Simulated assay, not measured.
Amino acid sequence: MPRRPTRTVPTVVVPGLNGSGEGHWQTWLEEQLREAGRETVRPDFGDHDRPELAPWLAALRATLAPLPADGFDVVAHSLGAVLWLHHVSTVADPGDSPRPARVLLVAPPSPRTRLEAVAGFFPPPLDVDRVRRGADGTVLVAGSDDPYLPNGIAAEYGLPLKMATTVVPDGGHLNTESGYGPWPAVLDWCRRDNLAFF
């Protein structure tokens, strides 16, 4: 018997470098949720090919500002997941920014990333307490063979943040190049209430 959709809160989709455009699972997810009558919002980062930390943080906060505290989800991919870690590390007071109910961080690149185009985002802050205060619950998902996570998601983020991780076998960077287009598992996560990804 298929699982019945139960969750109706807004979903904030936070893309990474290049904007998760046509064919990417984040774009597919937005389409699926909207067809089901769900609200989705996405920060306006302007030029996705030239990311800068301060403007991206400002765009994320502007997107979150009107949302109900503990009444929305965040689904962030790649550099967007790293951006989320910067966001929660700089929210000094819980009233400064609405807190989501759940956060899904997908394939954040290694904290030791040396790509010049995103150098200002690395290393990301790995503050356990601030990440925990930043949402009712946060989980990590990454491919077993992600080229941007040479030591694996658990070693790079899960253990430092003391956070649950899900490894997708042969998932690569969980992007269009890895075949994630439609991704039913992430849609299923958005539809239900529990935090675990699988």
Rank of each mutant, 00 (worst) to 15 (best):
residue 162 K to F: 09
residue 158 G to N: 04
residue 175 N to F: 01
residue 15 P to M: 04
residue 56 W to R: 11
residue 114 R to L: 11
residue 90 T to L: 12
residue 95 G to D: 11
residue 161 L to M: 09
residue 87 H to W: 10
residue 95 G to I: 03
residue 148 Y to D: 14
residue 8 T to I: 13
residue 173 H to P: 00
residue 86 H to G: 09
residue 65 A to F: 09
residue 198 F to E: 15
residue 130 R to C: 09
residue 14 V to D: 06
residue 169 P to D: 03
residue 85 L to A: 04
residue 125 P to M: 03
residue 96 D to F: 00
residue 68 P to K: 15
residue 197 F to K: 03
residue 135 A to T: 01
residue 9 V to D: 15
residue 45 F to D: 06
residue 58 A to H: 11
residue 48 H to Y: 14
residue 191 R to N: 12
residue 129 D to A: 15
residue 85 L to N: 01
residue 62 A to H: 02
residue 115 L to R: 12
residue 8 T to G: 14
residue 137 G to M: 08
residue 161 L to E: 07
residue 52 E to A: 13
residue 134 G to W: 03
residue 46 G to Q: 10
residue 58 A to W: 05
residue 29 L to Q: 06
residue 92 A to N: 15
residue 180 Y to I: 02
residue 100 P to C: 08
residue 177 E to W: 08
residue 3 R to Y: 13
residue 182 P to A: 15
residue 26 Q to G: 02
residue 45 F to K: 03
residue 167 V to K: 04
residue 112 R to Y: 09
residue 105 L to T: 00
residue 136 D to A: 14
residue 59 A to V: 01
residue 66 P to A: 10
residue 84 W to G: 05
residue 19 G to C: 02
residue 50 R to K: 15
residue 51 P to K: 10
residue 197 F to A: 05
residue 95 G to L: 08
residue 112 R to D: 12
residue 146 D to A: 08
residue 62 A to D: 11
residue 107 A to Y: 04
residue 182 P to C: 12
residue 47 D to C: 10
residue 109 P to K: 02
residue 2 P to Q: 07
residue 77 H to D: 11
residue 160 P to R: 03
residue 17 L to H: 07
residue 133 R to Q: 15
residue 131 V to H: 06
residue 145 D to L: 04
residue 179 G to W: 01
residue 126 L to Q: 04
residue 193 D to A: 12
residue 9 V to W: 10
residue 163 M to R: 06
residue 128 V to H: 10
residue 10 P to G: 06
residue 159 L to R: 15
residue 37 G to V: 00
residue 43 P to I: 00
residue 119 A to D: 11
residue 85 L to T: 00
residue 147 P to F: 07
residue 51 P to R: 12
residue 38 R to I: 01
residue 27 T to E: 13
residue 19 G to A: 05
residue 96 D to G: 07
residue 191 R to I: 00
residue 15 P to V: 01
residue 171 G to D: 01
residue 1 M to A: 13
residue 8 T to R: 14
residue 47 D to K: 04
residue 88 V to D: 10
residue 71 G to E: 13
residue 103 V to A: 08
residue 132 R to G: 12
residue 13 V to Q: 09
residue 162 K to M: 12
residue 117 A to H: 05
residue 169 P to I: 00
residue 185 A to F: 07
residue 135 A to Q: 07
residue 170 D to R: 10
residue 52 E to Q: 13
residue 147 P to Y: 05
residue 62 A to K: 07
residue 127 D to A: 13
residue 18 N to A: 15
residue 114 R to W: 03
residue 66 P to M: 09
residue 12 V to L: 13
residue 74 V to F: 03
residue 128 V to A: 13
residue 102 R to N: 03
residue 104 L to D: 04
residue 14 V to S: 05
residue 126 L to D: 05
residue 132 R to V: 04
residue 87 H to N: 09
residue 12 V to I: 06
residue 153 I to C: 10
residue 53 L to D: 11
residue 53 L to G: 09
residue 125 P to A: 06
residue 174 L to N: 01
residue 71 G to M: 11
residue 29 L to R: 03
residue 138 T to M: 13
residue 177 E to D: 11
residue 56 W to N: 06
residue 86 H to F: 01
residue 43 P to N: 02
residue 48 H to W: 15
